[in-house]
């Protein structure tokens, strides 16, 4: 019985520490109110973008580097993302919607593992939609640098989305677990229809994705 109580006390202490760690992140922030339903679209780079976007994509995973092109196209309420090699071969084709429905239309067999497609899908979903669309987000002004960010609940932790002062668009997105950050996405760019570049880094797995926008000339050819 004594042992049980000791274990219970220890577990409570750990829970309290974990809870306080999560709460204390960005301590000193001042709440400025709940998000409106329009806010996610206002801050996300891709939600209001009606055109296609093409990026040069570099993926570093456990010491291996892969490169290719990432193609993003909004279709109605959804977004389609394709990853192809520079030489034109399709690696994967996924479709996303804001309510976190994800459909894999195609994935090359070598990559078609649940853990891989789930990780990729979650990352790309965050890149597209940034702010949780569940009505629980609150805006805060971060004390030390007066940055505005939105905190929202996420599976297994919280999501922090920081906005650029001049653009109002997402500048940094941090997904945090109980003890430390799980992953972060940095968005770079002026106030255009899409960010010029993005860097996505995981903390618990060795995975980094770098995107640099390709500006197409629009040249057409005839067969």
């Amino acid at each position: 019985m004594r042992s049980l109580l000791r274990n219970l006390a220890f577990s409570s202490l750990v829970l309290a520490i974990l809870s306080s760690c999560s709460e204390s992140l960005y301590k000193g922030s001042e709440s400025t109110g709940q998000l409106t339903s329009n806010d996610p679209a206002e801050h996300s780079w891709f939600l209001n973008n009606t055109g296609r976007t093409l990026y040069k994509c570099s993926v570093d995973v456990y010491g291996n580097n892969f490169s290719g092109l990432l193609f993003i196209k909004p279709i109605g309420e959804t977004h389609r993302i394709l990853f192809i090699t520079e030489t034109g071969l399709k690696i994967f084709d996924m479709e996303f919607s804001r309510n976190k429905e994800m459909k894999t239309w195609y994935c090359m067999e070598a990559l078609n593992r649940k853990t891989i497609t789930r990780t990729l899908g979650n990352d790309l979903y965050l890149m597209l939609y940034n702010i949780a669309d569940n009505g629980t987000a609150h805006t805060y002004t971060k004390a030390e640098d007066n940055r505005v960010f939105v905190r929202s609940e996420d599976i297994g932790g919280r999501r922090y989305c920081f906005f650029g002062r001049s653009t109002g668009k997402t500048e940094e997105l941090v997904k945090r677990g109980s003890l430390r950050n799980k992953m972060a996405i940095s968005f770079f760019g002026a106030d255009g229809p899409a960010p010029d570049s993005l860097k996505l880094e995981h903390n618990n797995i060795k995975l980094t994705i770098q995107l640099n926008r390709i500006y197409e000339t629009g040249a057409e050819i005839s067969e």
Binding site: L54, F71, L82, E86, E216, E220, I221
Partner: peptide
Amino acid sequence: IQEKNLVVLSEKIIS
């Protein structure tokens, strides 16, 4: 000239 045709999306990527 390489023309990647995404038929379902009615899109082309030209390089």
